[in-house]
Amino acid sequence: MALPSENELLKAVQAGDDSAFARLYELYQERVRLAAWRVSHRPDWLDEIVNESWCRAFAARTSYDPARPFLVWMAGIVQNVYREQCRKSPLTLSSGMSKSVEDLDEIDPESVASEAELLSALNRCVSKLSDVDATIVRLRFFDDKPLRVVAQEVSISESTLRTTTIPAIMDRLRKCMTSQGYEISRIFSAQDPAESQ
């Protein structure tokens, strides 16, 4: 038997189908977590925000409008949960790590959802890279290491890394993103402006 499409799932959720909601959870949990991260930037609150958001979504599943993107609906719930969390623990906001409630009001759920979608898609593309390419991405972009250090780690000359390897990786990522429906319009430059001088 063919799996139900996402639209069918959304309609089933709206009709109160628990198993359809569970299936949506499987599909969306990573992106909802990313939305929670995007909204809060609070690693210590993430689990609580995400779990509470799913609980509320489950409780309100019959009021969900299938015409609205599910992730946008979830992002709105995540923002509300985060606001409440901030009110409960106002002092923790002074850490500077998290987003303030005022900042939150400037972000709409659509933006949060689209960024979560984007990061999730990019993560999938990175996971498809070869081990060496993935290491380069990790060192250079995740850990923000200078090209010189990355070159030493992967035993590739710095100039080759700059002119050939990294642009090729970026091209692969760009194609991968395009295949998932995300078009990266700005041309990437592997060369750090500071390093090029």
Binding site: L34, L122, F141, F142, M170
Partner: peptide, 17 residues
């Protein structure tokens, strides 16, 4: 793409995945 990768790295570090 570079900025997105940087965000992705931050999300990974901070438990976004």
């Amino acid at each position: 793409l570079e900025a997105m990768l940087s965000s992705l790295g931050q999300a990974r570090r901070e438990g976004g995945f």
